[in-house]
């Protein structure tokens, strides 16, 4: 197992005081940057938190057609200048169209025309931010006839063209196989791990019709097995984060999830 694999937790404001006031082993945190764009007492508290910070964004609209929102990117840059995150990421999706914000991570067709457009957009974002970003694979609930390549192939080509990185969300590929029969095996065989700088683990909401990526459950055992499969392939320094955004557990339970994840990595 690569000694360059680190572990951390996504940080919600609800847990900020817990992390500041209690002993804990967490040294890496990731925040949803969009929730931290306005200054306030929570910024002061975040500055007191020791550890490495990652930004995870939901508003870059990397695969969209609307012009990039430079004002939004500037806000992310300003936050980045203040907190100096190790890595900034967003998703391989569109979030807005015709100035209508969907507040969701929406899929698109994986083909050459879209790849050319997304390459251009990622280049622009990285230029504005002054650093390379990581791009996360998506959980999605429908697929398009006009896709001519796989998501993994699209991501590989995108990272090659833009010198960006992959944020590999193992829960998402697990959900996509369950919902849409998109092969986990094929995805992990195809993705180029030289681009992977961050990994996400989470739990999903098992509904009647769909399994939904709501980050509202403990880490799925099958997803932990996927992590074990990935570890020998890791060639980069990489941070593995557990994401929990809904049905928030106690602080102690959150730390237990981190412990579970760490035991798999270091066993």
């Amino acid at each position: 197992m690569s000694s360059n694999v680190k572990t951390g937790l996504s940080l919600r404001i609800e847990y900020l005081d817990d992390f500041l006031n209690n002993d804990h082993p967490i040294q890496h945190f990731e925040i949803i940057a969009d929730n931290w764009l306005s200054p306030g007492p929570h910024h002061n508290k975040l500055e007191q938190l020791s550890g490495e910070l990652h930004f995870h964004c939901v508003g870059m609209n990397l695969a969209g057609i609307d012009p990039l929102n430079k004002n939004y990117i500037n806000k992310i840059k300003a936050l980045s200048d203040k907190f100096k995150p190790t890595l900034i990421s967003d998703h391989l999706c569109f979030q807005k169209h015709n100035n209508n914000c969907h507040h969701d991570l929406l899929p698109f067709a994986y083909n050459q025309k879209n790849l050319d457009r997304v390459i251009h957009r990622v280049d622009s974002v990285q230029q504005q931010l002054g650093q390379a970003i990581a791009i996360e694979n998506l959980s999605y609930y429908l697929t398009f006839n006009t896709s001519s390549m796989t998501e993994a192939d699209f991501l590989n080509q995108l990272c090659h063209a833009t010198n960006s990185f992959i944020l590999l969300d193992l829960n998402n590929i697990h959900i996509n196989e369950l919902n849409l029969k998109i092969s986990i095996r094929q995805f992990l065989d195809e993705i180029e791990f030289k681009y992977v700088k961050e990994i996400h683990l989470a739990g999903a909401n098992v509904g009647n019709d769909l399994i939904v990526d709501d980050h509202g459950a403990d880490i799925n055992e099958q997803v932990l097995e996927l992590l074990q499969q990935c570890l020998p392939k890791m060639t980069n320094s990489c941070t593995v984060f557990y994401e929990r955004d809904t049905d928030l557990p106690t602080f102690e339970h959150l730390l237990l999830q981190h412990k579970k994840m760490t035991e798999v990595i270091y066993e």
């Binding site: 609930y141 429908l142 697929t143 006839n145 849409l180 769909l210």
Partner: peptide, 13 residues
């Protein structure tokens, strides 16, 4: 434009 079974996905979105 979508592969079969898109209805559940659209309902979710």
């Amino acid at each position: 434009n979508c592969k079969p079974g898109y209805e559940q996905g659209l309902k979710h979105y």
